[in-house]
């Protein structure tokens, strides 16, 4: 069906819904990046994943050998948990010998808070600051893991803007 033609009088009634929109202004490049860049500017790769059946001791060895503070737990392409040094302290240390051959799924943090790769660095930093999360997985639009953000990467990001 043909779209009805608009007359000049119809167009004169048009009111731009964004007419009062004020473009944000930023004091410096850091503020602009925090607000407008995608979080992927913060070096969100590389990362390592394990499965829920990975043995606890093996996961811990991976973290020590690769100098990682956490691993993401993936099941059939979906993020199902995160395993971090904090989990070792809280759930493993006192019973290490008894549970080290068990699966990571019993000690991992389930359903971790995540962000999407289109979210801004400000969103990530706020979640980490307010929620107290040291690491935040980053997912794409199909909810597949594309990266992780941790404290060292945040520090590197901030440092970039302090250099002359």
């Amino acid at each position: 069906m043909a779209r009805p033609k608009r007359s000049a009088s119809d167009l004169s009634d048009f009111e731009d819904p964004l007419k009062n929109y004020e473009k944000p202004s930023y004091a410096d490049a850091l503020e602009r990046s925090l607000s407008e860049d995608p979080v992927t500017v913060m070096e969100t790769t590389p990362f390592r994943t394990i499965t829920p059946d990975t043995k606890i001791e093996k996961a811990m060895r991976m973290m020590v050998e690769d100098d990682l503070a956490c691993l993401m737990v993936e099941d059939r392409g979906r993020l199902v948990g995160i395993f971090s040094e904090r989990d070792v302290l809280n759930r493993i240390a006192e019973d290490f010998e008894a549970i080290k051959h068990g699966p990571i799924r019993v000690v991992m943090t389930r359903d971790p808070v995540y962000i999407h790769d289109t979210d801004s660095p400000a969103v990530a930093l706020n979640l980490m600051a307010v929620g107290g999360f040291r690491h935040i997985p980053i997912l794409d639009v199909d909810d597949r893991i594309v990266g992780i953000l941790g404290p060292i990467r945040v520090v590197r990001y901030l440092q970039r803007f302090l250099e002359d």
Partner: peptide
């Protein structure tokens, strides 16, 4: 540590936060 920095950014940069 970095957590202190993140809290500082959140406090000093309220836009979006």
């Amino acid at each position: 540590g970095p957590r202190g920095l993140m809290e500082y950014v959140a406090d000093h940069f309220p836009r979006q936060v």
